[in-house]
């Protein structure tokens, strides 16, 4: 019973928000077209997803493929960012010479906002999946890289000594000591990275791609379909929330050993 109440806790705020919004929209303080009521948004969304009455016109029934297109871009860019960010981060954190030769360049590229790469991305990759994947990569790469470097640099020197005492080679040291020691920090980077990944997929889809939820969002804006704009926004929120939840579960299972050691475990 207590468990059910706990579960319900998280629904209270969204529920109140939606009720308030519905009342406000119906009150007529703003023209209904500018702030569609949740009920209308839900209706258009249902049509977008299941083609119930064609009210979302060309998008009717296309939600799944739009969501899939966006997810695929996020996943591809994010996977490339994860693999390269973790590997490069470990190398920079571990070998001084890699740090000296590569890090200054990385730190110079980092302050350039990923969205400012859009013109070049379009020139290089054209209007399709690739510029979006490239942007997602840029957005997710830096937080993952920096957190990995931090994790490696702050790993306990005595653990390295202990492993050396037990006869670890350098490669074993990196895989079996440095990587797990840096994992909590890497995971933190992954969670920041997934946020940037969604942000940049949507941005890219608004300007450089002709499919996905971001594209529907921007296209609906041109056709004054603010109900669909809102449906797209909520979709992005839910998808982002879902991927973050998956990461959180992954984190809980791989960092099981931290249980009872941190504030999180309370």
């Amino acid at each position: 019973m207590l468990h059910l109440i706990r579960r319900g806790e998280r629904l209270v705020v969204p529920f109140l928000l939606i009720i308030g919004w519905e009342i406000f929209s119906r009150s007529g303080l703003l023209p209904a077209a500018l702030l569609p009521a949740p009920s209308i948004v839900l209706h258009s969304w249902a049509d977008w997803a299941f083609a119930i009455d064609g009210s979302s016109q060309t998008y009717s029934g296309h939600w799944l493929s739009d969501a899939l297109a966006s997810c695929l871009r996020v996943l591809t860019g994010y996977a490339i960012a994860t693999a390269s960010g973790v590997l490069l981060g470990i190398a920079i954190g571990w070998w001084r010479w890699v740090e000296r030769t590569i890090e200054p360049t990385v730190q110079m590229i980092r302050p350039i906002p990923p969205v400012s790469w859009i013109p070049l991305a379009i020139i290089w990759f054209g209007i399709a999946d690739k510029p979006a994947i490239f942007l997602v990569f840029l957005g997710a790469f830096f937080p993952i890289l920096l957190n990995t470097i931090h994790g490696v640099k702050t790993s306990d020197r005595n653990l390295i000594r202990a492993a050396a005492m037990m006869g670890a080679t350098e490669q074993q040291m990196l895989r079996q000591v440095i990587f797990p020691a840096a994992l909590p920090s890497i995971m933190a980077g992954l969670r920041i990275g997934i946020g940037s990944a969604w942000m940049l997929t949507v941005t890219a889809e608004m300007v450089a791609v002709k499919s996905g939820i971001g594209y529907v969002l921007w296209d609906s804006y041109y056709f004054l379909r603010y109900d669909l704009v809102l449906a797209a926004m909520v979709s992005i929120g839910l998808l982002g929330y879902g991927t973050d939840l998956l990461l959180k579960l992954l984190m809980q299972s791989t960092l099981r050993w931290q249980r009872g050691q941190t504030v999180q475990g309370r």
Partner: peptide, 20 residues
């Protein structure tokens, strides 16, 4: 010439791998 498994060390702090 360097550390090796022919000399077992017990450290002042236990220095166990916290993930194992």
């Amino acid at each position: 010439t360097g550390p090796g498994a022919d000399r077992g060390m017990v450290f002042q702090q236990p220095t166990l791998m916290p993930w194992l």
